[in-house]
Amino acid sequence: MSEPVAKPKSSAALVQSRRNALRSYLGAYGFMAPAGVLVIIFFLIPVAIVLYLSVTNLASSNFTSDLAKMEFIGLKNYQTLLNDQFARKIFFNTIFYVLVTLSLFNVSLALIVSLLTTHIDRSAGFVFRALWILPRITSPVVYILIWKRMMAEAPFGILNQFNEFLGQPTYNYVATNPWVFVVVVNGFIGVSFGMIIFTSAIESIPKDLLNASLVDGSSRMQRIRYVILPLIRWPLLFVVTYQTLSLLTSFVEIQLLTDGGPGLYRTEVWSLTAYHRALSNYFGNAQWGYGSAFAVLLVMIGVVLAVIYMRVFRFDELVAEPRVEAL
């Protein structure tokens, strides 16, 4: 029996193993390349362009065919922004909108819908969930038009026609309670994302575990509290994180519903402002540079929030290598 001694590698073998290492290295990047290209084209490059625009004075009022006339003005746009008398209001509008919609609809109602529909007959649960997906898959324009038709003032709105028919006073719903409608209309869209994630998380809890809890003496409510909720902790935190960021950047529905009004900036949110300033100014002047400054701040807030969430919720634990099963 010879001793197992590590043989010195021949130079040919060395070249071979280097080649293998290179190949697997290239393989890894090859697989990541499509996603990488998408990130570069649709995220990094636009961010770079917007970053650049935000330090220029580019606007339709000074726009010529000679873009070189665009002037570098440093942080002046940011200065203007901080001194903007409405920036503060819009900032708090945004926080209000994101917090309320997220907590009431995107998380709570999503959780309630998925808990309810997983505790009833399977096919009935499926039907209810399908209904909740409708707002998401309907085109925003159509979806908002439906709401506007329902809620429009007398004599156009369907609800108000009912009111008139019943001899009740009529209301200008959206104008009197714009925030209620902004939150509800967006909330109905937002429910489906969390609902799908929570439902699949609940359904992937082993049946034995759920049965064991009942046999151990829990009611169905106690089972939700002590077993189901702790077991879907990661999906919950993920939905909170993801939906915060997507609410921060969403504005199409608000634009279509109230366009930030009624009145001055009553329901205007940050991302909508960026759009208004850059592309659809009331006064016909598209301030591309100034709007970009809004957008840049939004991206920064989003990145900071994402990092905070990842720290607080310890997402690194979620993706950590599983400990060796001691079975």
């Binding site: 082993p206 034995d208 575990l209 049965n211 064991a212 809890s213 009942l214 046999v215 151990d216 003496g217 829990s218 009611s219 002590y226 077993v227 702790p230 077991l231 902790r233």
Partner: peptide, 20 residues
């Protein structure tokens, strides 16, 4: 009668221990 009111103990093939 609900499971919780039957005073039974059950052992499963999968052990069914609460992982959290």
């Amino acid at each position: 009668v609900q499971p919780k009111d039957r005073n039974i103990g059950m052992v499963f093939q999968s052990y069914a221990l609460y992982p959290h």
